[in-house]
Every structure is written in structure tokens, then in C-alpha cells.
Computed example of a mutant assay.
Amino acid sequence: MYRIKLLRNNMLWAFLIALTATMNVSCQVKNSTTDDIEDLSEATLGDKSGESLVEERKYRLPNIDLSHWKVTLPVGKPDEVEPPEILNYATNAELKNYMYNDSTDGSLVFYAFPNSTTTNTKYSRCELREQMVPGDNNVNWTFPQGGTMKGTLAMDEVTKDPEGKYHKVIIMQIHGRLTNAQKELIGAKDNNAPPVLKIYWDKGYVRVKTKELKDKSASDTDILHTDAWGDDEGYTFPDYVGFKKFTLEVKVKEGKLTVVMNNRDYKTYDNVSIRRWKVFENYFKAGNYFQSKEKYSYAKVKYYDLEVSH
């Protein structure tokens, strides 16, 4: 009897000890989980709810203020959308097929293909045009006044030509413009002047082209004509960017034009042609000016941030 009673007592004590240990482990796990949640809240969530965190991780937006830009689309006459309508591009039925967010990487995508073209051009575009006064093309800037445009961008998709080479895309520009008085002076049919700067994505490299006077001694009136200007030989930055993200900065200051790539490589233009460009008004452009007319060709350019200052 004693042995049976002792065995029963031992079994009871073992049960009680096991139960106590289980309760302690349970409490420790519970406390550890609570602490982990509190640590996550303090280190990661702040005052945000878990739902807000999911939203923040799921949706990323580009850092671009569109209040001083209009966009030209590759469709319509071509169609253009100015401020304030452009600010609602994400829900604008006219825009969302050609200019839209990629929320997975926080970029604004510009999609273009051969279709509608603007006056004096043969290629289509989905491209932003600077408007210093929103909705007004008549207020622009001169080289003596200067300006800076900086953006982070990447080529997302682009087709190849029959030889297997990627199509070219103009990704940034400085475009010249005649004032109304200059237009009347030379009898031009519109205010169009040459683009003094074109920056290309060219087979994975960044290539810069500027304008040069054909006759350096031409008068200030003569150089208002488009045919007074030709293209320079161009400059290609040595680094291959391919489809990776990179930065470009265009700076106009004191009669100089400088293009900076990835904050380290730069090309500066300080010559007679650049100094004489002061007769024109100008505006910045950025986006996707697609350089192909081949059927089924297209390109998508991503901008992550874009800013302009004067």
C-alpha cells in the first residue's frame, strides 16, 4: 500500500510540476509575443496602424510635382493635358493608358508608340512640357536667366529595330521658343524654335546633342530662323546604364550649359553658339519622345523624381 500511495503521490507531483512548467512557458511565449509586437510598433509602425503599414509597403508614388507641367500624348491631334487636370492623371481616362504610376517601385511611366505627332515633327511622344505659369505657354525663360532640371529615371521597355538594335528615345530636352514679336519679325507661322538640347537613351547609353550656328557671324535676326542652326557631333557618356536607374541634371547658368550624369560625370558647353542662344525663350521637357515609326514599336520610360528651379 505504501509503495502504491508513494507512486501515486510521485505521479501527482510530476503532473503538477509539468503543468506549472507548461503554464510558465505559455506565459513566457505570450509575454514574448506582446513584447515583439510592441517593439515592432515602436520601431516600425510609429503611430500608424497595421493596415496603414501594409498600404505604405504596397503603394509607392513618384516624387514629381506636376503643377507646372503639361503633357503631350501619342494620340489625338495630339492630345494635351494641362494643370490642373494633369494633377488627377491617375484617374484621368484620357491619361491613364499613357502616363501612369508603377506603385511597385514608385515611378511615373510614360508610354509612347508611333501614332500622333506635333507640328514640325515626325515622331510621337508622351512627354512633359514645362509651364512656368500653369496653363500658359507664353511665359518662359532665357539662358541669361538660367534654370536647372534634375530627374531620376530608367528605361523600362523598348523595342528593337529589324537589325536587333534598341530604338532611340529622347528623355530630356531644352526647347527654344520665339516670342510673338520675333515670330512677326521673321514671318514665322508659329512660335517654334529649335531644341538647343536633346538627351537620348541610345542603345543603353546616354547621348547628348546640342545646336550649333552654321554661320557664327549671322545677325541676331538671322539666327531666329530654324535653318540657321545645325546639330553638333554629339557626346555619349561612357557609363552603360541599360535598364538601370540613373540621374540626369541639366544646368543653365551664366551662358553655360552643363549636363551631369549620376552626380559625377558631366559635359559642359561654353561656346559662341550657346552664348548666342540668349535670343530665344526656352522651356524644359522630360519624358518619352520615341524615335521610331516602325509598326508595333514602343517604349516605356520611368521617372522616379523630377524637379525644376529658376
Rank of each mutant, 00 (worst) to 15 (best):
I86V: 15
L87R: 06
L87P: 07
T91C: 01
T91Y: 07
N92Q: 08
E94V: 12
Y98P: 05
M99S: 05
M99R: 02
M99C: 14
M99G: 04
Y100H: 11
Y100C: 07
N101Q: 11
N101R: 11
D102Q: 06
S103T: 15
S107K: 02
L108S: 06
L108N: 03
V109N: 14
V109K: 10
F110V: 00
Y111W: 09
F113G: 05
P114R: 03
N115H: 11
N115S: 14
S116H: 02
T117H: 02
T117C: 05
T117F: 01
T118Y: 03
T118N: 09
N120I: 01
T121D: 07
K122R: 11
Y123P: 02
R125S: 08
L128P: 01
L128V: 01
L128T: 02
R129W: 00
Q131D: 05
Q131N: 10
M132C: 01
M132E: 11
M132D: 09
V133I: 14
P134W: 00
P134L: 07
G135D: 05
G135H: 00
D136S: 09
N137D: 13
N138Y: 12
V139M: 07
V139Y: 10
V139E: 09
W141S: 07
W141D: 11
T142I: 03
T142H: 06
P144K: 04
P144S: 05
G146E: 08
T148K: 13
M149F: 07
M149Q: 12
M149A: 13
K150E: 14
T152G: 11
L153W: 12
A154Y: 07
A154R: 12
M155Y: 08
M155P: 09
D156P: 01
D156G: 06
D156F: 11
E157I: 01
E157L: 10
T159E: 10
D161P: 09
P162I: 02
G164N: 05
K165V: 06
H167D: 14
K168F: 01
K168V: 10
V169F: 00
V169D: 00
I171V: 15
I174D: 00
H175D: 13
R177C: 08
R177I: 04
R177A: 13
L178T: 01
T179Q: 11
T179Y: 09
T179S: 15
N180D: 15
N180V: 03
A181M: 05
K183N: 12
K183R: 15
K183E: 13
E184D: 15
L185S: 13
G187P: 08
A188T: 03
K189C: 00
N192E: 11
A193M: 11
A193G: 10
P195Y: 02
V196N: 14
V196S: 14
V196L: 15
L197R: 04
K198S: 14
D202V: 01
D202Y: 04
D202T: 06
Y205P: 06
Y205D: 12
V206L: 15
V208M: 07
K209M: 15
T210Q: 13
T210D: 09
T210R: 14
T210C: 15
